[in-house]
């Protein structure tokens, strides 16, 4: 049983905004509940809060194609994203990431917006959203703004959002035809597993084999979603050699102690990251690296 001060179920965006405007201090948005209801079992975190249940608002569940972007409603479930032909074609790394989340029950219920707002560093979608240069649309009591993903999540389980902010859509860049995606999840088991590390990769080459676009980053590793322009630049404009791949692996894995600090897990994560980056790039480049 979840304890709360008040529970409000809304069915439209307008009602949600009204409820957010009217509620007294202490508001928690419920967008599926796969985190909120679990948290509610320990102590009484929502006893003095108003729960606004935005799950299932149709306006927030659309997946739409725009000129350069795909707009994903924050209320879309991981299952919906995983199965969207549009996302699979033009932002496939996100579909792959969503497919690794929890179990079918969780994927059918948990939403991408809720996942983002919970800001777990182990959230599987985050690294994929990073390489798709995601931006987040936020509605604060009717005022809409759009900010880069990295500016929304501040650190583990902490966002820059206020309790009146409602994530409405997440925009991901459409990748050009021929783009190769890769999503790797390392867990302790094959389902219902919290990631030890994820690696998301987006790579595009022109007809001559020269890399024109490249993003690669890890999840469940850093305090917030990050892209590394210096690492990405190491391959762009090149037909990568074996040495280039090793250099990228060294550079990316070196970010772990640099950003997350040296932790007990570093001795595991840094070498694993190095090896897996090499393996993924070799696979994506189809053994073309010399």
């Amino acid at each position: 049983m979840m304890e709360c001060r008040e529970y409000i179920k809304v069915t439209t965006l307008e009602e949600a905004l009204e409820a957010l405007a009217a509620a007294q201090s202490g508001v928690k948005l419920l967008a599926g509940g796969t985190d909120v209801l679990v948290n509610a079992r320990e102590g009484h975190p929502y006893r003095d809060m108003t729960i606004v249940d935005i799950y299932g608002i149709a306006q927030l569940c659309q997946v739409e194609e725009q000129a350069d972007w795909i707009a994903i409603g924050a209320g879309a479930t991981h299952a919906k994203i995983e199965q969207s032909p549009l996302i699979r074609e033009k932002a496939g790394v996100l579909a792959d990431a969503c497919r690794t989340v929890g179990s079918p029950q969780i994927r059918n219920h948990a939403t991408i917006g809720g996942n983002l707002a919970n800001a777990s560093p182990a959230a599987d979608a985050l690294a994929a959203l990073s390489v798709l240069e995601a931006e987040v649309e936020i509605n604060r009591l009717g005022n809409v703004r759009r900010v880069p993903l990295g500016d929304v999540i501040e650190k583990p389980y902490r966002t820059t959002l206020t309790e009146r902010d409602l994530i409405t859509r997440i925009f991901v860049k459409k990748a050009p035809a021929g783009t190769r995606f890769h999503f790797y999840k390392l867990g302790r088991r094959k389902a219902l597993s919290i990631s030890r590390m994820t690696i998301a990769t987006l790579l595009h080459r022109d007809a001559s084999g020269v890399i024109t676009q490249f993003h690669m980053t890890m999840g469940a590793t850093f305090p917030k979603p990050m892209l590394f322009a210096d690492v990405d630049a190491m391959l762009i404009g090149k037909r990568p050699t074996r040495a280039d791949i090793i250099a990228v692996a060294d550079a990316l894995s070196a970010k772990i102690p640099l950003i997350a600090g040296i932790r007990p897990s570093t001795a595991y994560k840094q070498p694993v990251c190095n090896k897996m980056v090499q393996r993924i790039l070799n696979e994506l480049l189809g053994g073309d690296a010399e």
């Binding site: 179990s103 302790r188 088991r189 389902a191």
Partner: peptide
């Protein structure tokens, strides 16, 4: 069972 892991049907 979030922390104490047992094999799933996929394992």
């Amino acid at each position: 069972f979030e922390d104490y892991l047992i094999p799933t049907v996929l394992d």
